[in-house]
Amino acid sequence: MALFFDAEWFDARLAERGLPRTVLAAAAGMSPAELALVFKDQRELSAAEVAVFAELLGVEAKEVADRAGISTPVPGRVDPEARIAALERRVAALEEDVARLKRS
């Protein structure tokens, strides 16, 4: 996974398809300003945006996520058991916080 958004890679994929960045923004439902933040590594892509970028660029969603330097789950590949376990941990932590507040 890249540590930072790989703007050169995205620009090269767009150039291969003869597309400007504005098309990428429009396809993902983003404003040009939002896309500029993504390219400056100041805004992370959502899983849905990763999927749109992948389709438009003709690559796998995992490649887009890796090149964007994010940990966004690849659409359609979320492990339901891991998701449930993570949610259960969050609920347990929240319940502990509520109990602690009630005791205060």
Rank of each mutant, 00 (worst) to 15 (best):
R103E: 07
R17C: 02
A85D: 00
E34P: 00
R21C: 00
V98M: 12
E16R: 12
L3K: 15
E60K: 10
R21E: 03
A7V: 08
G29H: 00
A27C: 03
T72E: 15
A33D: 10
A27S: 08
F10E: 04
A51F: 03
L101W: 09
R67D: 06
G29S: 04
A93V: 01
E44T: 05
E55L: 09
V98T: 12
V98F: 11
P80H: 06
E88M: 11
K62C: 07
E34D: 13
A51S: 05
E49A: 10
A99K: 14
A2V: 12
L3Q: 14
A26T: 07
E16C: 04
A28N: 04
G29V: 01
D97N: 13
A2M: 14
A12W: 13
V52H: 09
T22R: 09
A2R: 14
E81P: 01
T72R: 15
L56D: 06
S104N: 15
V91A: 14
V78W: 08
A12Y: 13
T72D: 14
G58N: 00
L14W: 09
R89D: 09
E63L: 09
L24C: 11
I84W: 03
V38N: 07
V74N: 02
V64W: 07
T72Q: 14
L19Y: 06
V38P: 00
R43A: 13
A86N: 00
P80W: 00
A65D: 12
R100N: 00
F10W: 10
A7W: 04
D97F: 09
L37Y: 05
L19F: 10
V91R: 11
L37M: 05
E81M: 00
M1V: 01
Q42W: 15
V91G: 05
R13Q: 12
A82S: 06
E8W: 05
R43D: 10
T72N: 15
R13F: 07
E55C: 08
I84Y: 08
E63V: 09
P20R: 13
A82H: 02
A15R: 08
M1D: 08
A36C: 06
E95T: 11
E34M: 15
V64Q: 10
P32I: 12
D97I: 05
L37G: 07
A47M: 04
D97Y: 11
G69K: 00
T22P: 01
E95M: 11
L3V: 15
A27W: 03
